[in-house]
Each structure stands twice: as structure tokens, then as C-alpha cells.
């Protein structure tokens, strides 16, 4: 237990020192997530197979925020599930911190928020956020839990049960839960997909603010172009099934990015460009 705690401090604490000391072995910047020539196909029975991903390549650097953008059913959630270790690639290589993805989950250094919040209905907000501590069999750091409740703006709702919360609040609890152990890698699978446009926009603003505070390596899966451009350092646009990388867009607008940035000409231009790229698919269909 002490060992894994030290690990976290080393890898998350000072990226500069870590990169400097390992420069001889591995050129910086360190690669946090790597998918190489990944193909993923599912057996549908009666000798039919569905190929979700084909020859897929993706690399996310340590401390980088990457958004996967694509039409629904293009396999972007499959990419995320491969990185969590919940699914195994049919062929190719998936590495997280140079190891098998499941290793990160086993050592409790992965944070995930799914589209369905999946909170425990019998637990309070506070207990739900503390859950990762319990699953890691560590003593709950209540200070950390309360800090996250403040961060996601749920002060006063600590004792509420999930069913008493709105959809947006539940997602904020799910994100706080994903962050509570200070994970090395954060994976977000359309966390605001089920929310209305206004709430979604506000949540995006909050996620941007939260991310500013601790630059965690993040992979976000979304079909919302504005969301991707607002949050990410790089946006990877996927083709329709089978999913391949169509385009990689670097977004170097300065941070912190506030909601007003979405009205700037530069932002609109990037959004329009990416939307066009997504539309190519639909025309082809």
C-alpha cells in the first residue's frame, strides 16, 4: 500500500523531474496511453463479425487532454473500454504507462466516468465519492472527499442520495468519484451525454476549470464538437465503422478557456472544420 502511494507521488507529482531522469531511456514527452495497430472485432454469432476498430493508432502524452470525436457507433467508446482494460483488443497493442491497461485499474490509479453515472443508490453523495478509497481498501481521506465536493460544487448535498439529485449533479458526483484517488489517467465516456444543452455547457465549463487545477492525462469520448474543442489539447476525429483516425486537430487556444471563448472566430473556425469532417461520413452513408 505504501509502495503504490509513493508511485503515485512520483509519476503524478513532478512530471518534469521524472521526464528528465528517464530522458536517456525514453525520449520525452512520456507517452501515457498508446494504441498501436489495434483492431477490435466482435462475434455476432452465426459466423458474422462486426469490426469496431481497424488498424487504429493513438498516443496520449502525460498530462495531455485528448478528445475522441466521432459519429455514434464509430467505436470511440470501444477505444475507451480498451484503455480501461474492460475489453481486450483482437489484435494490436494497448499500453497505459507502458503496461497492460488492467494493471492501472488494479493499482487503483485509473479514474473513469461513464455516460450512465452508475452511482450507488443506497449511498450518500459523500459515500459515493469515497467509494474508490474503499475499493482500494485504503482509509478514506475525508478531507480529500470534501475538497472534491467543493470542487464540483455540491456543498450542502453531502448527505443526499443519488435519486434526490438532478442529472447534472449526479454526473458531477461521478466525476468527483473518478478524481478522488488523484488518478494518473482519467477516462470520460460521454459523461454529459444524457444532459440538456444548457446544463451540458455549464458542466463543460466546470470540467475545464477542474482540469486546470490538476493536469491529469485525460481521454474524453464525445460526439459534441464544441465540447471537444473547448476541453482538449488535441481532438482526434474518427471515421464511421470500422473506426479509424480521420484527422487529428491540435487546439492551442490559451488556457484557462472560459465559455466566452466559444464565440471567438478562431474557436468557430475549428468547430466548423471538425463538423465538416464528421459530416463526410454521413454523406458517404
Amino acid at each position: 500500500m505504501t509502495e503504490s502511494a509513493t508511485d503515485t507521488i512520483q509519476s503524478g507529482g513532478s512530471a518534469a523531474t521524472a521526464a528528465g531522469s528517464t530522458a536517456a531511456v525514453r525520449p520525452a514527452p512520456a507517452e501515457a496511453i498508446a494504441l498501436r495497430n489495434v483492431t477490435m472485432s466482435f462475434d455476432l454469432g452465426r459466423s458474422k463479425r462486426m469490426t469496431a476498430l481497424e488498424d487504429f493508432n493513438l498516443s496520449v502524452a502525460e498530462g495531455e487532454f485528448v478528445a475522441l470525436l466521432g459519429p455514434s457507433g464509430c467505436g470511440k467508446s470501444t477505444v475507451l473500454r480498451l484503455v480501461t482494460g474492460l475489453e481486450q483488443a483482437t489484435s494490436g497493442e494497448v499500453l497505459v504507462e507502458d503496461k497492460a491497461p488492467a494493471d492501472l485499474a488494479k493499482s487503483h490509479r485509473l479514474g473513469v466516468a461513464f455516460q450512465e453515472h452508475a452511482l450507488l443508490p443506497w449511498s450518500s453523495v459523500r459515500e459515493n465519492i469515497a467509494l474508490p478509497f474503499r475499493l482500494a481498501r485504503r482509509a478514506v481521506d475525508w478531507q480529500r472527499v470534501d475538497e472534491l465536493i467543493r470542487l464540483v460544487g455540491l456543498v450542502g448535498f453531502e448527505k443526499a442520495r443519488p435519486r434526490q439529485l438532478s442529472g447534472g449533479m449526479k454526473q458531477r458526483v461521478a466525476i468527483a468519484r473518478a478524481l478522488v484517488l488523484s488518478p494518473d489517467v482519467l477516462l470520460l465516456d460521454e459523461p454529459f451525454g444524457a444532459l440538456d444543452a444548457v446544463t451540458r455547457r455549464r458542466m463543460n465549463g466546470e470540467l475545464a476549470r477542474i482540469w486546470e487545477e490538476q493536469h491529469i492525462t485525460t481521454l474524453l469520448v464525445t460526439h459534441d464538437v464544441e465540447e471537444a474543442v473547448l476541453l482538449a489539447d488535441r481532438v482526434v476525429v474518427l471515421t464511421g465503422r470500422p473506426g479509424r483516425v480521420r484527422h487529428v486537430q491540435t487546439v492551442d487556444m490559451p488556457r484557462p478557456r472560459h465559455a466566452d471563448i466559444t464565440r471567438s472566430a478562431e474557436f468557430r473556425a475549428v468547430v466548423d472544420h471538425l463538423t465538416d469532417l464528421l459530416d463526410v461520413d454521413r454523406k458517404a452513408e
Binding site: 480501461t84 485499474a105 493499482s107 482500494a136
Partner: peptide, 8 residues
Amino acid sequence: DVFSVFGS
């Protein structure tokens, strides 16, 4: 899935 990814 949530329990798996938190290494339970």
C-alpha cells in the same frame, strides 16, 4: 464496470 475500473 465501475467496480472493475477502480480495481475492486
